[in-house]
Design a protein around this nucleic acid. Structure first.
Lengths: 230, 230
DNA sequence: AAAATTGTTTAGGTTACCCTAAATATCCAA
DNA sequence: TTGGATATTTAGGGTAACCTAAACAATTTT
């Protein structure tokens, strides 16, 4: 048995911690409004929850300044993230779900599944390290390799990149990306960028690829890695 | 798609409906106290919930008289039961859970899993009609073959019976029953019954069985079917 | 530097679900 | 048939998580 003195967090609390983790990962402390936007909850409600989370020492809160996860908060967030991502893997690989249909299901199950279930699923999958959208899966003891990736929106014309990860929240966007051939592992060359956040024209695929164009908003949800010379 | 105008019930509500279904199945309308006992909730809280369920037309409530499921209530109860039992099957057959360890896990997942997930699991299992404890699995459209079985506590000395179903709630009891060889499909012959609800001595197994004794309380949780002459 | 905008918190309210204690209804037995 | 036991409901509270509207703080613009 692992050492888990955790007093069991409610589903809303787990969702807040995940959101804060994700916001903090990108940059500075998470702001009330950003959390509210992400969870589709009023800022006032977020304020209230921040007080409760701070009382439980899951975050530190500087009023008007934002919020940071404590060690315990980070651990809890990573635990939920692990559950979510293993569930996504399992639903796709074992139960035949589509790429774009797993997020919501995993979102609900992650709060109900026991550690035992998650670990059984992980074992069945061969303990994967990335989920189907390319997100790294935290280990049981709370380690993640959180690569600082650029997005397609940051890439310059002429560059060759490999898609590493895409945001999984929005089923429709995922469906569209899949249609374009943009999924983890895909090769992309940037052919052109229209100014003022205009569409990005790119070449998707290995040798026999195709030319496509995507908007800047969507491009910011596609994380890529520059390709080594070859 | 099936016609499902259901407004989504909370986990507590689903638990109440399941409990009422089960109590009603045995006999008369479900009483407040029985529901309270089964759910480990105070009778006062049950009273309050009964009012809410009656408002939602899931039950009919005659104060001081007990409670009955309406059509809608029964449908909802059977839906939850189907989820629970398919989950139990899946956890055991696909994920290697033990007989006695699935109840609690299924109890939590049944409120979170989507219909799609449940049906994918059912398909993977070949649409089973009974769960591992012998309970019938309601169909998607809410039909169950609910056999009126006797229990081991009702059987007379000398009778031969086949175990059809055991209660799945208590992991420890299940473990003990498994140890005795009492599981769905097992053959049992009643050798002796001590008076005043005393222990029942029985022979478990086909030809090379063993003699065991169990208390009347446990015997009442084992549902059996008399064997045809042979 | 004052004003306006934006972001955050407080005040006050709601709903679902639970509790204990007290009141009330029903049932049974003397 | 009455008195006690048992079952049920009402009264009154509590907590978690949400909400809107109003107050307040910080930042940006003029």
């Amino acid at each position: 048995m692992s050492a888990a003195p955790t007093p069991a967090l409610s589903a809303p609390v787990e969702d807040y911690l995940k959101a804060i983790y994700d916001l903090e990962r990108v940059g500075a402390p998470a702001s009330t409004n950003d959390i509210a936007d992400r969870l589709a909850i009023s800022p006032a409600s977020v304020s209230g929850m921040m007080r409760r989370l701070a009382e439980q020492r899951l975050i530190t809160h500087e009023p008007y300044r934002g919020v940071r996860l404590t060690g315990a908060g980070r651990t809890a967030a990573l635990r939920t993230l692990r559950r979510h991502r293993i569930l996504e893997c399992y639903l796709i690989e074992v139960l035949g779900y589509e790429w774009d249909g797993v997020h919501d299901e995993a979102e609900r199950l992650e709060h109900a599944a026991s550690d035992e279930l998650i670990e059984r699923m992980a074992a069945r999958l061969g303990n994967p390290t990335r989920d189907p959208h390319g997100a790294p899966i935290p280990t049981r003891d709370g380690r993640v390799e959180e690569a600082r990736l650029r997005t397609l929106a940051d890439v310059v014309v002429g560059e060759h990149v490999r898609v590493r990860r895409v945001q999984d929240e929005d089923a429709e966007r995922l469906r569209y990306l899949a249609e374009l051939g943009i999924r983890p592992g895909a090769l992309v060359r940037i052919l052109d960028r229209a100014p003022y956040d205009g569409p990005i024209t790119l070449w998707v695929g290995e040798s026999a690829g195709t030319t496509r164009a995507i908007g800047a908003g969507l491009a910011a949800e596609v994380f890529v890695e520059p390709l080594g010379p070859e």
